[in-house]
Design a protein around this nucleic acid. Sequence first.
DNA 1: CATGAATGAGTCTTCATTCAT
DNA 2: GATGAATGAAGACTCATTCAT
Lengths: 197, 197, 197, 197
Amino acid sequence: MKRRQILDAAYTVFSRKGYHRATVDEIIALADTGKGTVYKYFVNKEQLFYTLITERSSNFEKELKRIATLDEPPLDKVKQTIRVFLEFYVANGDLWRVLMHEMRCLGHEETASFTEAQRKKYRERFAQNIGMLQAILQEGIEQGTIRNCDIHKAAYGLYSVIVMVVFQGFVADSKESIDEAAERIADIFLYGVAKQS
Amino acid sequence: MKRRQILDAAYTVFSRKGYHRATVDEIIALADTGKGTVYKYFVNKEQLFYTLITERSSNFEKELKRIATLDEPPLDKVKQTIRVFLEFYVANGDLWRVLMHEMRCLGHEETASFTEAQRKKYRERFAQNIGMLQAILQEGIEQGTIRNCDIHKAAYGLYSVIVMVVFQGFVADSKESIDEAAERIADIFLYGVAKQS
Amino acid sequence: MKRRQILDAAYTVFSRKGYHRATVDEIIALADTGKGTVYKYFVNKEQLFYTLITERSSNFEKELKRIATLDEPPLDKVKQTIRVFLEFYVANGDLWRVLMHEMRCLGHEETASFTEAQRKKYRERFAQNIGMLQAILQEGIEQGTIRNCDIHKAAYGLYSVIVMVVFQGFVADSKESIDEAAERIADIFLYGVAKQS
Amino acid sequence: MKRRQILDAAYTVFSRKGYHRATVDEIIALADTGKGTVYKYFVNKEQLFYTLITERSSNFEKELKRIATLDEPPLDKVKQTIRVFLEFYVANGDLWRVLMHEMRCLGHEETASFTEAQRKKYRERFAQNIGMLQAILQEGIEQGTIRNCDIHKAAYGLYSVIVMVVFQGFVADSKESIDEAAERIADIFLYGVAKQS
DNA sequence: CATGAATGAGTCTTCATTCAT
DNA sequence: GATGAATGAAGACTCATTCAT
């Protein structure tokens, strides 16, 4: 129970302050617990952060896999995938922004406790999520509904637009807003901004 | 001269480590200078960071403005703008990533010396750069070569793709690589991934 | 308990070295504690200093008030007050000297954490103590045992002599020495050095 | 000439800020000279401070000696001496306050450059000045105009009152104000505050 | 289990002093 | 002689982590 409170508090503080400016003191104040308790459940600050990431993304990843395996037209699946991504980033965007920043920096030198194994695991997971998009695009190409392009880069491109839409606050935390944004992104992504001649 | 060395070293360290993990000690080691020298030229770490940003972006911004005022077809100008953005981010991307992260967090609470004025200035500058893209898209809509869409969001979308391409390492630091990437981005952005029926 | 040790060590170091030459490192060495502990109990060096002052003076002030309200001849009360002042300065003189010096300088510019409120409080407290002397002198004038003079200045004069006596080492830390000094100061103060014609 | 400017600037800054808060940078800014120049004329900050003290006190000391050797009634000489002290402290009080504070602290441990010899010299000089007062009081006792008391302590007492009068701002920097204050101090010192029965 | 007092390694920052021009 | 750029030792302060209760 304390564990839950700590994770929730940590989510808020990390999201608001970033990794470094977030202090354990602030987290325990918000979690209404003692400092020792944090170190009972988590080996250190980085581990706490990592746990947070893992926990928050597991549902998202399951959902992503579910859609990928649906037997529907790829163009529809693209739209659905966009929606799931949007939902996830609307809910966890700030934390993810922090994560992405730290992955860069943490990766460069050996930092004490964020193990290389964990970092690798994260990168694989990230690649996997993008991979879901990629697979759907591939399916579209095979079925002839998507033009032949570098699906790897295209997937990243779509991904980056999704993230941007959330970070720029172009989408609110409501089903309608998310659905609408998904529509629009899919539209631009699929048909471009140029007028069809 | 020492000032130059410090700025260059700071660029490297901030880019690699991010703002917080970058230490003044590391910067002076790389700059081969003394700690006092840093504080002779820059009031503090944040000011040093800010100076770096300002310095690096001034040429980029001039180039951006130049293109915006060219008397050419908007579709060509979009491509050129994409190229300039790519060049800039290939050269300064890592530092920018750090800046963007810090702007978020620094904005939250009062941090001693990164003045509100500076932060505001940065945000305006950023908005202005995106604004250049936006203006060109608007031109395209008026001339009927770009379909009617929310140019604000479209500009951000294009921007996010550019940044992503650089950060994912899809483009190398060579004229050819950048030109090719600009072509491809423009292509997808303008015509989408869906096969023209 | 650590708090006590830190305060005691701080007293010694501040008294010996003055405010600026006193280092937190030296205080913790003497207090046999860690640096963090100091900042757990005191927000910063100045706050530590201020706490010291407040703590040490509270008994003294109570005693002073007690005497002021006694129903005895003013001339006797003057002597008693002198004694209380002497006791206090013999015990805390060195620290007070430092305080008085710092009040001058700290007052000039905005120093971060020694708040204006604290400084004001100190000044009021100081004025109040001198005020006790002043009130007794006034009583004497009204009862006709003290000649009509500027009691404000006279009180300061007496005060300065007391402080001097302690700082010049004219009085030792023993009841006898203090009593004797009080006698002598009172004598000179009340009757002057000139031979009565 | 630069030397003069530096000394004057140093006087101002030391008086205002105290020894530690006074920075060489501030002094050279006020003296309108370069940092190197300071170290051409003075071996270091403490030496500069010491030179200042010496320079400022030499006239004062000459005047004191002159009065001591006058062939006048001791009671008159006491008044004159008080006046000379007042004049000196009104002009140099703030610097002296700083000096007195630093002597305490600098004396405790070996500080790099304020030599023991210098400190000793200062102490002797200070004792000598008080000694002038003392000698006059002695003269008075011998001539029977001053009652028999511990002249050493009495001299210090008188001295402390003089200093206090200046530091409390009870006297302005004008001949009239100083003369009047001298009168009053002499009066209280010689005849006390108690009403003559 | 939960706690929070104690800790000290690690940072930023200041400022007296030097030395090449 | 005059200068000021360069320096680094020294000091205040932070915060993740530990451990005895």
